[in-house]
Design a protein around this nucleic acid. Structure first.
Lengths: 227, 227
DNA sequence: ATATCATTCAAACGTTCGTTTGAAAATGAG
DNA sequence: CTCATTTTCAAACGAACGTTTGAATGATAT
């Protein structure tokens, strides 16, 4: 037992996943080579193909390791809310927090690599490679449907297609916030110290998203065909 | 003259830029090779290095061709608004529309490749390669500062750091909307026919962003250090 | 100790990458 | 027409890519 604790036995796969996470985030999936990756992990070049089969399979494993638990946590939070509400409608703000909370808690994990992964995840939504977008889409699909249903119940007066768009916008806001590493400085003026206080960030995000989700339906939104 | 019109003289560079735009969008900057690119453009493999110098220089040229005019259009729209207002404060909604309008008008240009470029642009914000993010940042910086100043004047009661964050969120919403090709279907239910009606899209976007920008400042947002 | 299985390793595989080269073709000016 | 300049072209460059191979090493159980 103690012998095992000293010598990393099946840790090789973990070391590879950690290095992959880091390098995929820094250089992208194509930009990070197997040689960089295995060097950082301190394993042989052939180890990735031995343990995962291929580079593509490794990419999938990197996402699956974090994304599956994250979406499970999301769904659990939503179900907890619904049980507490005893059949009554949920507040949109609470649903939003259930969704973004899981992402933000991952940002907080700077030691375990969660922060690295969340940045990688934010980028993956706009990945050029269709296979990766499909992969992400599949992993998100179940949670997405449940949250959509929750929003429909919370906002019965909001047209369905409008809701879909607003969810899309909310998702974009979150994805971009996750991906942003130094991009906030595009606008300049953000104090770096509060970027990692996730409690404040969750409040900011929830305030913005809630307001956007509940935005008044102006007449202009109905005008599909006009002069 | 007519001889020139028939035979593409300096059109070679344009053909390369068009092909690059398309392939960078489809496969990413690393994923699109010079051989793919020159084949699509119908030019010799060496043409890119002859006309642009290198692949990196080509990437810069692809962005500069569209982004510089787009940001100029943005600034012109903002200045027109300010002159019309005669010193009075602008409506936040109007500022937002001045900003997103330029992007959305580009989406409409399906023939000239503007739509392709806007998708590419949406992705570039989250590019792993630091050089590309820097490039985009530089090109946006002047417009960003002007719009920030306009928002400050329109919303003097909103704390500056809160404004920066909300601009960040708005930018994310827009970027993600531009990048989204098939991602809307992640949520499923969006009618494909109104995805390209930019007038409706601008209304949707402006409604969401305005509401988010003007979201009430709850007390929770001030709590930086709490139990 | 020996046989069995899982893992690691150095080396090489063939392919594709961005770039360079020097000659051929096209263009414009005197 | 002639000459100088610009542009195109086929071919090759060295480097880096993901993957495969077969032998060496490690651990486990009989």
């Amino acid at each position: 037992m103690s012998v095992r604790a000293l010598k990393p036995l099946k840790e090789t796969q973990t070391r590879i996943l950690d290095a992959a996470e880091e390098l995929f985030m820094q250089h992208g999936f194509e930009g990070a080579s197997m040689r960089m990756l295995t060097a950082m992990a301190g394993v042989n070049l052939a180890a990735v193909n031995y343990h995962f089969g291929s580079k593509d399979a490794l990419i999938e494993a990197v996402f699956r390791r974090r994304l599956d638990p994250m979406n499970a946590e999301r769904l659990a939070a939503l179900e907890r809310l619904e049980q507490e509400a005893q059949g009554k409608a949920l507040a949109p703000d609470a649903i939003i927090r259930a969704f973004v909370g899981a992402s933000l808690r991952m940002i907080e994990d700077t030691r375990g690599g969660g922060r690295t992964f969340s940045r990688l995840l934010g980028r993956a939504y706009t990945e050029p490679a269709k296979s990766i977008r499909q992969l992400i889409g599949q992993m998100y699909a179940p949670a997405m449907e449940r949250f959509k249903a929750a929003f429909v119940r919370a906002l019965p007066e909001l047209p369905k297609d409008e809701l879909v768009w607003r969810m899309h916008f909310m998702f974009g806001t979150l994805a971009y916030t996750l991906a942003a590493t130094d991009t906030v400085q595009l606008i300049a003026g953000a104090k770096p110290e509060d970027r990692y206080d996730v409690r404040v960030l969750e409040n900011r995000l929830a305030a913005f998203m809630s307001a956007g989700l509940l935005a008044p339906l102006t007449g202009a939104l109905q005008v599909r065909i006009a002069a």
